[in-house]
Design a protein around this nucleic acid. Structure first.
Lengths: 264, 264
DNA sequence: CCATTTAGTTCCAATATTTGAAACTAGAAT
DNA sequence: ATTCTAGTTTCAAATATTGGAACTAAATGG
């Protein structure tokens, strides 16, 4: 994938292991990796040794290690929009009573960063940290629509365009047209493009100076809601997204000033 | 810390950045790292490039990257006890009405893997992924008590023994005596050793063949409960821990058999 | 406004590490 | 008992990392 020397390769191995979504044996990994046996073997040893992978001696299988959870906790706290967005998600969830998602883009995929569930309490990592396709979800399209040109080209070339439902926009051409519409409206719909019976409205989170940071969405089942209903919520969703974007840009400036004060 | 070649060093840099618990600039990292300027610089570039770190161009600061969240999600699903323990935590939480923790050991520290909160829904990564000291928490001591000798020696040498409260066991000698008691009882108390006003009872999670996998605990404020009350719950906690341990060992065997069946 | 300091980035030859074919070992299947 | 398969180790050649030093950009201050 990406040739950042030894470290990049090690990251690729991490992804490889994580990608199986189950503990996996050496041989399987070898079949799916570009590395020679000895090389892959040493990477697995090193990563296991570091706690980035977990080796189960009973099963003789590798899985992502819990050291990653500690690091991810720091990432969630510091690099994600979750801390800033939290009160806004709470408010949307309370006011609208439907599922609320907060997502960011990671490797051209949608990464769900936080969630409020309509009737039941949040399920932990089973939601946060989960990934999904960008080209056929509300949050995904909302984010793509406001990506800078070069990044967009790359991202669009990396989508699978698998047709999950009859409504899926399953080509780059169709998707680009849709993104145009989304840009002009300022929000995106998911018209059962990923899962039948599930629709959503999503808005991008943009800083005042235009950097796209993520997206939020309101999701509901077609049994309970429809696109007309969702569209009525558009102003609310947009407003929440704008507030998050503004706060995100303002964030940390106090921090820097503090340092200045201390140094003076 | 640990010299696993280039990959090990890159992991150290990740820990270094995560350890600040806030976005941090190049210079600060340099002051706290053993690497020369150019070397650290290249590590940061590579890791940022890989999405393992996040570089904020406005602030010119580094933070753990959201790619870690995706990997951690896989770790939580596959390598942690959370999926197995979930129903047991739910039951304990429902029956006892107090806070329930599930923890595992990571780098001689307590890593909280899941949680049920008495009255309010779970807070996401703000709990899962969080780390704490092993020598002065219930889950920590319960796990240490059932660690194999060599691993225990290492772990005990890595504790800070900071005296958080008057009750903290702030030396290896005191702690070893306590671990002896815990081994004979099969459960551990936290007698306000980490936070004043907070007590807990914890039980190690052991496989039938004796491998220590983690621990669970029931925590309460001294205003509402006392050690006598907690001790009454010991059988319940132990039973839940045993069930988790048994299921964890049994886990995956079907998987292997499936493969055998397919191959035959 | 220019001089000076500080912070961050690039270069490149010396050096240490990674690489991977091949040999080896343990255990399962025949 | 023998053959296979899966996993582990070895070692010289190939390659990537290293880090001192030179460089640039941006902040500071005179």
């Amino acid at each position: 994938m990406s040739g950042d020397g030894t470290v990049g390769k090690a990251c690729d191995v991490l992804d490889l292991v994580a990608g199986f979504n189950r503990p996996v044996r050496f041989g399987e990994l070898l079949d799916h990796s570009p590395f020679p046996k000895a090389t892959l073997y040493r990477f697995l040893q090193t990563l296991t040794n570091q706690g980035m992978l977990n080796f189960d001696p009973d099963r003789q299988s590798y899985a992502p290690g819990i050291r990653l959870m500690r690091l991810a906790h720091a990432a969630w706290t510091q690099s994600s929009l979750a801390p800033i967005a939290r009160p806004h998600l709470d408010a949307l969830s309370r006011d609208l009573g439907e599922t609320v998602h907060l997502a960011q883009l990671d490797a051209s995929q949608v990464l769900y960063v936080d969630k409020r569930n309509a009737e039941q309490p949040v399920e932990m990592y089973s939601q946060a940290g989960k990934v999904g396709p960008a080209y056929c979800t509300g949050v995904g399209k909302a984010m793509l629509a406001f990506l800078p040109e070069k990044a967009l080209d790359l991202a669009l070339s990396q989508q699978s365009y698998f047709r999950f439902t009859p409504n899926t926009l399953a080509s780059e051409t169709e998707l680009r047209a849709e993104l145009e519409t989304i840009r002009s409206h300022g929000y995106a719909f998911d018209r059962e493009e990923h899962e039948p019976g599930i629709i959503c409205i999503a808005a991008p989170i943009l800083t005042p100076n235009g950097r796209m940071l993520g997206a939020i969405s309101i999701t509901g089942p077609t049994s309970r809601t429809d696109l007309t209903q969702l569209e009525k919520w558009a102003p609310l969703v947009r407003q929440a997204a704008d507030n998050i974007g503004r706060e995100a840009q303002a964030w940390r400036f106090p921090d820097i000033q503090q340092e200045k004060v201390i140094l003076t």
